[in-house]
């Protein structure tokens, strides 16, 4: 498993009634890789990564995460696996009745490793907040934060469990260009510091340029193209060019 892919999505099909969102979609993610998934709004990008952590069931196909088939795990085993996969929601999904500290501590209640236990929750929380550059917000409520800050806190909440994989659902959407760039660099820094593999869903070309090693373009529920950013940028295919203009 050491050198095999950390995520292996094979011929996954997902439909909502008549709406076939994913049609035999396949992709793999190698250890330490930053894979960007590019696609129009409504093309099923969010559905895809929700399938990866089994938030929504899919119709057929297989998904293996860190060597385990997500469909055959029981709930407890799934929880253990999920703790190793970070998920950054498009809407951030911060727990709005809790302070930033409680938001971060929340996932620690079940899954923290011996090293973290030794350091204590407070130090672990502060370390995660420092990673995203917001240690001073520890006592604030989510409503008191700006959109960009919320995104960073959500990232800190994901980082606190030291995941091996992070799934980012449109990390820069709705942010101004400068903040978007900061978030993109933050993603790269995190990836280098903790040596995680990431899937970055986006339609922000700049973000993809900064963060990705490889890009998969999702059109009509299948992987239409799979190449590096530079190669796709120079492609003559009109359906690919659309994304870069």
């Amino acid at each position: 498993m050491k050198n095999g892919p950390v995520i292996d999505v094979h011929n996954v099909h997902k439909s909502f009634g008549e709406n076939h969102v994913l049609r035999d979609f396949s992709m793999t993610l190698a250890p330490g890789e930053n894979l960007a998934i590019l696609g129009k709004s409504g093309s099923g990008k969010s559905v895809l990564i929700k399938c990866i952590v089994r938030l929504i069931p899919f119709d057929h196909g297989t998904i293996e995460v860190l060597g385990e088939d997500v469909n055959v795990l029981d709930l407890d085993a799934l929880d253990v696996l999920r703790a190793r996969v970070g998920f950054l929601f498009q809407s951030n999904a911060l727990y709005d009745s809790m302070t930033v500290r409680e938001n971060l501590e929340f996932s620690l209640r079940r899954h923290w490793n011996a090293d973290q236990r030794k350091k204590g929750a407070e130090a672990v929380v502060l370390e995660a907040l420092t990673d995203v550059g917001l240690p001073h917000t520890v006592n604030m409520m989510p409503v008191e934060l700006s959109g960009g800050m919320r995104k960073r806190i959500a990232l800190a909440r994901t980082l606190i469990l030291r995941p091996s994989i992070i799934l980012y659902d449109e990390p820069t959407t709705g942010l101004d260009p400068i903040t978007s760039r900061e978030i993109s660099h933050l993603i790269v820094n995190v990836q280098q510091k903790y040596n995680t593999a990431s899937v970055i869903i986006s339609h922000d070309i700049n973000c993809i340029n900064i963060t990705s090693n490889r890009v998969v373009i999702l059109i009509d529920g299948t992987g239409y193209a799979n190449d590096t950013y530079a190669n796709l940028r120079n492609s003559n295919d009109p359906r690919i060019k659309d994304f870069f203009d």
Partner: peptide
């Protein structure tokens, strides 16, 4: 609706 329950789910906290 704000996906907070989903967020708890994916952080493995039941």
């Amino acid at each position: 609706v704000t996906e907070q329950i989903d967020a708890m789910d994916v952080s493995g906290t039941n």
